[in-house]
Design a protein around this nucleic acid. Structure first.
Lengths: 234, 234
DNA sequence: CGGATCCTTGAAGATGATCAAAGTTAGTGG
DNA sequence: CCACTAACTTTGATCATCTTCAAGGATCCG
């Protein structure tokens, strides 16, 4: 496919796994033909070491991003140096595309939580693409809608549920089955999950132990659930 | 203007104040010519009594909305009946436009907090408008971006700041001046502000009294600030 | 003027943050 | 492959914050 050719030319470092993630990303997989080719033409790829900064709050926004491998953490700092995570971006997720039509400064920090490969798209270039290509505009609207919905869900979860309930929700959201026993593996460190749920690491740890009586066993990154239905009652 | 003509024909009940709000709404004020005419052609207007429901979580989504007068509350319910506000929509705000490209069910409840006039836009109609009209697509992207940014800000605020700090932030955001004394009037009930900040009404009340020592005086809906700069240090 | 709603205040309890220290895991280099 | 270090996680103890429940005041609107 033409798109693949362009992509490989300008970005030798893309592994085949990264390419697969990129093409399956919700933001791109609805695009085809010239829309896809044009989007990929504005794209660059970069690799980040663990804890590396993607951008800082207040910097001029020049690009939005798509995670190809690893996890990127979006967070804010308070004046006294405390951090609050806003979103954890998994492979396939885009972030900062909300700056296309608004601010010209990044409104939060973005940091690689481990070794990461991320694609960047020039904001100006995509903006003018979107003006002329309804398919691109559609993809952006879909992506923004999805993020808005999940962020509103996050507000509601923070305000309605306690720590054990939020942890249970998270486990359930990653359980492949509807009932009976299940076993999942955390894709990242527990401290990252804690931040994602708006908790201190200690609070996450205590939430896990309070879930033991509901049949949740944690060993390292493995989580075993005796009965998924029972967990839903929390 | 043509647009005004269409609007008035199909919606006799629009007051001139409502019309002004509508045309200044961020979602519409970037539109002109046929884009505006087409948008307004898909629009209807309705008046709601205090506490009336706009839609319920789980209902089929057929329209998104723009508030013309009054305030609309978006909220979620937990299984035990507790409510958590997600957003308070002021005149000029749109809501539920995030359903254009995603779910077909409303993911939260929407309720008029007082007598309200709201405009509704058919989701399907606007969706096909956006496909053909880059100006409409652009307006939708801008609106979604704005809401996503403010919702992320809300998550960060909830996680970083205490009740008095959030109240101080709110006051500062509505202060017309940068320093010295200021006086503002709440546009709605305190219980609504409490929910907006993720607090119980009692917690808001206590936050106000704890701000007294920082020069904040509250009498009914009037808030007086002795020194705006001092409030910023909270 | 009167009833309903809204707001404030008090007291008690739940929840989660913070700090400190011990225990685990994982990664590195010999 | 093992040992060792650094990073991460758990646990305990304490504290701040906010919620809940209850009751008394204030305010608003008919």
């Amino acid at each position: 496919m033409e798109a693949t050719a362009i992509m490989m030319n300008s970005n030798i470092q893309l592994t085949s796994r990264d390419k697969a993630v990129l093409m399956k990303a919700p933001f791109l997989n609805s695009l085809g033909g010239s829309s896809l080719v044009n989007m990929l033409a504005t794209m660059g790829v970069q690799t980040l070491a663990a804890r590396a900064t993607v951008f800082r709050e207040g910097e001029n926004a020049e690009a939005f991003y798509c995670v190809l491998s690893g996890y990127v953490r979006l967070y804010r700092l308070s004046r006294d140096g405390r951090e609050a995570d806003i979103r954890i971006c998994a492979p396939g997720d885009t972030f900062a595309e909300c700056l296309l039509y608004t601010d010209q400064k990044y409104p939060f920090h973005a940091q690689a939580t481990e070794t990461c490969t991320i694609a960047h798209f020039d904001l100006e270039a995509v903006k003018s693409l979107a003006e002329h290509d309804p398919e691109v505009a559609r993809a952006i609207m879909a992506s923004l809608s999805r993020h808005l919905l999940s962020t509103m869900e996050c507000v509601a979860n923070d305000r309605l549920f306690t720590a054990p309930q939020r942890v249970a929700n998270y486990i359930l959201s990653r359980c492949p089955v509807d009932g009976g026993p299940a076993s999942i593996r955390l894709p990242f460190q527990k401290s990252l999950l804690a931040g994602m749920l708006g908790l201190a690491p200690e609070a996450l740890s205590r939430a896990f132990s309070s879930l033991r009586k509901t049949g949740v066993t944690v060993r390292g990154r493995m989580i075993q659930v005796v009965d998924v239905q029972a967990l839903r009652q929390i």
